[in-house]
Nucleic acid binder design. Structure first.
Lengths: 206, 206
DNA sequence: GTCTATAATAAGATAGAC
DNA sequence: GTCTATCTTATTATAGAC
């Protein structure tokens, strides 16, 4: 049974996703909950705190999901695959929240923004570390880790912008496509270079 | 010599980029231009029309840039490279406008939104056509064209979100990284598959 | 914990003089 | 083409009763 505080949060998620943070008023949220707008302020100090609360629990769960997925994988390729699958499926399964967390950072106060950005940086660092390990082990081509980690994450994050739960492709199918594209992208040059250097040795690895 | 209309537009671009569309008031823009806020309304019917004007000229120039870059390339790989370079360099060189055009769609009325989205769809279709031609000619692996075109475009568009003109990497260096990652991503599976099927023939193509 | 009523503020936009 | 002055409206947030 959901508390009113949870109801408010969930109605806010729905409205922020559909209309945007600025276009959603406290009255809109109250109407969605079936209460008066003044009652919102009993549960949250203000509109911005409500946004912050949404973003914080989203980032928390995003990080947990990544840790859970990584726990099941051991070698570097498996770990990268697990990380991408976690990232993609979280962003599609919790589309509304991830959409908000990505697109409404402008709505946060400076203090709250720095908390969320710090969490996001922690999250990105895990991906950068995965790329670095892959490069160290010679599985991926040497590359600019920061730029590529942004590229990989953004690419999958964008799913939250166009995904339709009742659309042509399921979450798993989309995760497959992204997983393949990113892994290919990271490994391709390595593969072709290895082939050029030593086709025989390359063949044993394929 | 810039007209006041151009000045207003350029000040608005700067403020929308730095503070966001909703957080920027007509008064802010007027102050940036050194005029009174009522004077803005002589040049633009309202704040939303100003945003629309910025987005429309940005999309126009984005499309022109792509056409110019494509005119110089002939084969499919060269055309894809040219398209990616055009996309990346435009988004970094005109960072403020492309950032706004990407992140402030929520600020448009329904009518204006549909105009911009239609232009964006035209633009995306050119990339989808490039991918399709590459697949037809066997240069790229068969793939989901819509999803991959979103992936490629978003990945590069995201540059406008983190790029620093005075940062570590130049526009050209970033374009190089993206060009390589995307091309590798599109061709990788094809390359390794070709090698598995016929290593000798593959070698002649490398 | 929710209500009614209202304060406080700020924004987009217009009227009309110069 | 720009100004001063003002209108209109909407929003966040608070006070205080129940």
């Amino acid at each position: 049974m959901a508390s009113m505080k949870d109801t408010i949060k969930s109605v806010a998620v729905d409205l922020f996703f559909r209309k945007g943070y600025y276009a959603t008023s406290i009255s809109d949220i109250a109407r969605g909950c079936g209460i008066q707008k003044a009652s919102i302020y009993y549960h949250f100090p203000g509109k911005e705190e409500l946004l912050f609360s949404i973003m914080q629990s989203t980032m928390q769960d995003l990080l947990s999901s990544l840790e859970n997925h990584l726990a099941d994988a051991s070698d570097i390729e498996g770990r990268m695959r697990a990380a991408i699958r976690s990232h993609v499926s979280f962003h599609l399964n919790r589309q509304k929240e991830t959409f908000i967390a990505t697109s409404e950072l402008r709505g946060l106060t400076e203090d709250h923004l720095s908390v969320i950005v710090a969490r996001r940086d922690d999250y990105e660092r895990i991906f950068q570390e995965l790329i670095r390990q892959g490069v160290d082990q010679g599985v991926y081509e040497n590359c600019d880790m920061k730029i590529l980690s942004y590229a990989i994450l953004t690419l999958c994050t964008a799913g939250a912008f166009w995904f339709r739960p009742d659309g042509r492709l399921s979450v798993d199918e989309i995760a497959d496509i992204y997983e393949k594209f990113v892994l290919n992208g990271l490994m391709a040059a390595q593969a072709s270079r290895a082939f050029q250097q030593s086709p025989a040795e390359f063949a044993t690895r394929t």
